[in-house]
Nucleic acid binder design. Structure first.
Length: 273
DNA sequence: AATTCACCCAACCGCCCGAAC
DNA sequence: GGTTCGGGCGGTTGGGTGAAT
């Protein structure tokens, strides 16, 4: 037996939001904070489904949303995260402050999938390629193909505009032992913040990495799911870093993968397990 | 100038989960 | 234990828009 719809569709506005609706929603949320989405429209004087309000806020109105111009660094990070995590858009978005899962998902579908497809045809046997082959098979029968072009010009940004990162947005991570890997990794019983952690060698190089959970307030590391658990005691959290630094972490991971092709896969699995 | 085409992205949809009752 | 609610996720749709003809 399925759930009842989140709201009756009768008499509710649908489609694009008007500036007035945006203002009503924003004002209400500034005054009362997030939550109680179902009852929010009525209280805020909106003729919208609560779910629609939440979506509008999360993907568009939130003050910390960074719009447009995915930088080349972000672009590359998305690709790498996707190669590790698959379509876990919320998890990927959690590593890109100001970006929403919806935005990243759209960006992937409209730009990156096409871009990687092109790359794949010229670079056989890469991880990306394998991934894309699998994806392409999955997507048989889908709508139209997406051709890039137009928005590619938006991807150019000066060095000075490099994105400062993190802490990442708190995202909920689920214990997937009870669920297959196709399910979201972003729902948690624990409701802890997740953050990337890495083990740093004596020379300062990042030796390996994983994700860990932090208490909301003091960011103490309370749990990790690392590549090699015996190193847990030497794990240090790496937050307040730049996108470039995070990118370096992934480069390190990829290095590891070249030496031992199964290592990165097991890292990815560790994120999901 | 008018029409067609291709693409982007905001919004919707269906489903799932945990909590509360 | 079953049901409902609130919230969240990934997949999909279709209106708007700019480019091409």
């Amino acid at each position: 037996m399925g759930r009842a719809p989140c709201c009756s569709k009768v008499g509710l506005h649908r489609g694009p939001w008007t500036p007035r609706e945006d203002a009503l929603l924003t004002n209400y949320l500034h005054a009362h904070g997030e939550g109680q989405w179902r009852s929010l429209p009525k209280k805020a004087g909106l003729l919208r489904c609560g779910k629609s309000c939440r979506l509008r806020w999360m993907n568009y109105l939130r003050p910390d949303i960074k719009r447009g111009n995915i930088t080349p660094e972000e672009d590359d990070l998305i690709i790498r995260m996707h190669s590790l995590l698959g379509n876990r858009w919320s998890l990927i978005a959690g590593r890109l402050p100001g970006r929403t899962d919806n935005e990243i998902k759209n960006y992937w579908n409209t730009h990156l999938s096409k871009k990687l497809k092109n790359q794949a045809s010229s670079e056989p046997d890469t991880h990306k390629n394998k991934l894309l082959c699998a994806e392409t098979q999955k997507k048989k029968g889908k709508k139209k193909s997406h051709h890039n072009s137009k928005k590619q010009k938006d991807n150019t940004k000066t060095e000075s505009e490099k994105t400062l990162v993190y802490l990442p947005k708190p995202i909920r991570v689920k214990d997937l032992s009870r669920r297959d890997l196709d399910s979201s990794a972003t729902r948690s019983q624990e409701n802890k913040d997740v953050n990337m952690v890495c083990r740093v060698g004596d020379d300062g190089d990042i030796m390996d990495a994983g994700f860990g959970f932090f208490d909301g307030d003091d960011h103490d590391l309370v749990n990790t799911c690392d590549v090699e658990s015996e190193y847990c005691d030497s794990i240090v959290p790496t937050y307040h870093t730049t996108l470039e630094e995070l990118y370096e972490e992934y480069l390190q991971l990829l290095k590891v993968q070249e030496d031992n092709p199964h290592e990165l896969d097991s890292f990815a699995q560790s994120l999901l397990a």
